[in-house]
Design a protein around this nucleic acid. Structure first.
Lengths: 211, 211
DNA sequence: GACCTTCTCACCTACGTGTTAAGC
DNA sequence: TCGCTTAACACGTAGGTGAGAAGG
């Protein structure tokens, strides 16, 4: 149906890799309130989780898909009078770590077929060997980060030459060891199934609501 | 300490691949009673589970490790008067299916480092698309099977040219949809942690036993 | 005291067990 | 009736939640 419309997009652009974040609307709800993510020694999952949809891969090529976190800025933050404000210089950044998606390497065809979920990734504030857990991302508390996705056209995830990096700005969050903003906490409880025990109303699929 | 003993084993034999079944003693207990495994539409795990130790791989080579089931014979079985007996000809065999271990492909060094567990494999009697579950092995009920392990020296599990097959005779079992032999059921309950709720005594790590 | 971190807890999700009753 | 299969169930394992108290 578009044959009468001149194609202004070059073929090289139409075949470029694209990464889109699933549940974008939910992420925006958190972003509008000010997303916080908890750090623990053994590692805590993110909520919302990072699930992405990939397009523009070569179907027959093999790829590794990685996730990492990057600092938004160099400040330390503080929650005061109901809002987050920059409060002095931040800590020196840790060396970058990558969470390699468990399906890597996989063909472009397989990766584009459905969503690629990073729900197994965990955020931690401890680098100690005693707290070792595979796939943890080490971060400083009270600092601002965002998620980045990396695509490597290779079977070897350490082959960084072909790496393309896609930042996901809407995932921007401040790391905490306990939630600061009560509005943020309400959003977590309302949407995370594992926090259903803290809901006061019977909505969202509880047994009493179904009966 | 063996320098005075002539080596009769050629280097080619000493480098051959070897597969040994973990928990061999437990498997023998079941074998002595007559192992049964339950089939369901969505798939049921095996107990005991198949965990193997690999030796003789080339440390730097990449391998795929697969599991399958094969028929012991062509009979249909029946449990009557407290024992299993062959009762007529069996069904036509299904086309062979392979459960590809989730770590495949992996280097020989990594595979030989620890145990390789196939606990995620599931046994099913339904091939229907509605009951699709990844990695199911489809079988006929009331027939006798045993587990086989396959080693492929390739990054591609469908590359069957280099496949070596290792049958595990002690895993021999009859497929059922409900357990027939009460002695067998007792062994399952006594040893499978997920069946702890059916134990009558407080042994084997229950909370009351620890306290 | 103010701020941040850690640990334990009740309460969930998710799913692996044999049992039991019903179905064919 | 008999033999076998299916689905619902209570009861485990395993682990993801924020709350709240305790610690630094």
């Amino acid at each position: 149906t578009s044959t009468t419309i001149p194609q202004l997009v070059s073929s090289s652009i139409s075949s470029s890799i694209n990464v889109s974040l699933d549940q974008h609307e939910l992420w925006e709800q958190f972003h509008n309130v000010g997303t916080e993510m908890i750090l623990t020694k053994t590692g805590r999952r993110m909520f919302p989780g990072c699930r992405i949809r990939l397009t523009g891969l070569k179907p027959a090529s093999k790829y590794c898909v990685l996730m990492s976190v990057a600092r938004d800025d160099s400040y330390r933050y503080r929650f005061q009078n109901g809002e987050w404000t920059a409060a002095g210089p931040g800590e020196v950044e840790f060396a970058p770590r990558y969470f390699v998606h468990q399906d890597s390497p996989a063909t472009g065809a397989k990766l584009m077929k459905g969503l690629v979920s990073f729900h197994k990734a965990k955020l931690s504030n401890s680098n100690a060997a005693a707290n070792y857990v595979n796939g943890k991302l080490i971060m400083h508390s009270m600092h601002k980060y965002h998620v980045r996705i990396h695509i490597i056209e290779s079977e070897d995830p350490s082959n960084l030459e072909t790496m393309q990096t896609f930042p996901l700005p809407v995932t921007s969050f401040i790391t905490v060891t306990a939630y600061q903003n009560t509005e943020l906490t309400k959003l977590k409880i309302a949407n995370n199934p594992f926090a259903k025990g803290f809901r006061e109303d019977g909505a969202r699929g509880s047994k009493s609501a179904r009966a």
